[in-house]
Amino acid sequence: MSGNKKKDSFFSRINIFSSFLQKRTLTEKKKITGWLMLLPVIPAFLIVIIFPALMGIINSFTDADIVAMTVGIGAEFFDIVDFIGFSNYMDLFTDGDFWEVTLRSFALVGIAVMLQYVLGLILALLLDEGLKGFGWFKNVIMLPWVVPVASMVVIFNWMTAPNYGVVNMLLETIGLEHLTTNWFGSLAFAFPIIIIMHVWRNMPFYALTLYAGLSSIPQNQYEAAEVDGATAWQKFRHITLPNLKYPSMVVIVLHVLWTFNNFDIIYLSTGGGPVGTTEVMATEVYDMAWNLNLMGRAAALGVIMMLIMMIFSGMYLKLVGGDV
């Protein structure tokens, strides 16, 4: 008897609970499903954003080395390292390299993104012309972008190899032997080749995005302009460019971030050399951390990179008015 009663109360409780659930609106139930779907993603964000940012900032105020890193993230870490205030930052600012490397990072981003944009826009306009015989080109245009950076580096190394690279062979064939050189090892040419690699890899992305933007411009805008007797340049300036504003912003911002933070294109092709002429902030952080064993100072430089990108993103958001 008593068992039955227990059962009853158990079921009635379930009933109350389920009727409570039923009373909730459909949207509330849906919201729970929504959160459940998002649940596995949230730890990932914590791991990629919150935790490394905090840890990076903490590290930048310590004298941590690789050994301190191997004890993990527990209390032992704080036993091993000493907090040294702003010393890492001071060391960076007084180190002659810092300003040179920072400037080079800016130069790389500025030159590469500008070239990629201009060349990508011209290619997008050409694609939009629908030239006969080139319909297939759109389909293969993204190939450079899908190739692993390490492979791209081998390909460019092979093409520019000192004695038997195809670039030097071509120069010899057209009688310009005096221009042949060890391209990646050359003080004058290593940096330009790095920029060419960036352009080769990323320019198609700009072209396709801008091409998609071009295709979505309503044709009647051009027709109206024609009626008004607008020249080709006026049409480009007052119809094409304004309509491309949004896709342009998106590709440029993405590539500023990607190029500034990119590490492997330079590290794998020149390692920052020759004599530091291609060293940028990203490769410097890696070298300091893993080759010079200066984790704290590397973290400080990484934090500076992060701040620069935050300022850039903030400015961008202000420009576009906060729409994502």
Partner: peptide
């Protein structure tokens, strides 16, 4: 996308 991977790798 803003975070430098070279900084992430340390933590």
């Amino acid at each position: 996308q803003m975070f430098p991977h070279v900084l992430l790798i340390i933590p």
